[in-house]
């Protein structure tokens, strides 16, 4: 005799055994990422999960979320998520980028403003976009490069945050070109001075960025 379709008591409710785990992972991700719009983010999350794409999760909780209120809400953690999602291809299509941007509950105006800095159509080189986004994070070119290094590095968090010097040069030139105040000559001389510190083709944070440490 097959079980009746109708349910008569609570014991008949069947919970699939995978559900708690999925739910837990999702909850953890949500706690970590702290999205502004949970629904939108969840949609993005489960879409990525079903597609097998990298999930829009921050690796670490970012406590100072104040920027989200004041301005764009773009943070280094969010950029890292984007980088995780998009870095597998050198070029990223604007549609895709927009989608991901929206998933992270970031305002579209900000994206447009970013893209206006270096107009392009169809797709944009990911590193360039990342560099542009980094430049909005920190005020100066140096702090933008710091963010860039911290996002791009494979070193563990808190480590020296080293990236290949070629990439560094490329991005630095790109950013300084956009900045009309800095002449190309200055850029080159700066890069030349940095080149002396470079060890095995990698440049670390400590090589060019001196943080104002409060003791």
């Amino acid at each position: 005799m097959p079980l009746p379709d109708t349910m008569f008591c609570a014991q008949q409710i069947h919970i699939p055994p995978e559900l708690p785990d999925i739910l837990k992972q999702f909850t953890k991700a949500a706690i970590r990422t702290q999205p502004a719009d949970l629904l939108q983010w969840s949609a993005g999350y489960f879409l990525a999960l079903s597609r097998g794409d990298p999930l829009p999760i921050k690796d670490r909780v970012e406590m100072p979320m104040a920027t989200q209120k004041t301005d764009t809400g773009l943070t280094q953690g969010l950029l890292k998520v984007l980088h995780k999602q998009c870095s597998h291809k050198p070029e990223v299509s604007l549609v895709d980028l927009e989608h991901r941007w929206r998933t992270l509950c970031l305002p579209m105006e900000r994206l447009r403003a970013l893209l206006q800095l270096d107009p392009c159509r169809g797709s944009i080189e990911w590193l360039k976009f990342l560099a542009l986004a980094c430049s909005t994070l920190g005020g100066s070119l140096n702090s933008a490069m710091k963010h860039f290094c911290e996002i791009l590095t494979t070193d563990p968090e808190g480590g020296p945050a080293r990236i290949p010097f070629d990439t560094f040069c490329y991005i630095y030139r790109y950013l300084s070109r956009l900045d009309s105040d800095v002449s190309a000559q200055e850029t080159e001389s700066y890069l030349d001075t940095l080149r002396d510190n470079v060890k095995n083709g990698m440049i670390g944070l400590s090589d060019f960025f001196v943080p104002q440490r409060s003791l």
Binding site: K24, R60, V61, P156, E157, G158
Partner: peptide, 24 residues
């Protein structure tokens, strides 16, 4: 559970990060 776990993992990650930072 997730809160607990996230807290634990965050703590561990923080420790790790500070350790790396100190090492650096």
């Amino acid at each position: 559970q997730s809160l607990l776990e996230v807290m634990e993992e965050e703590e561990l990650a923080n420790l790790q990060a500070s350790q790396y930072a100190y090492e650096e």
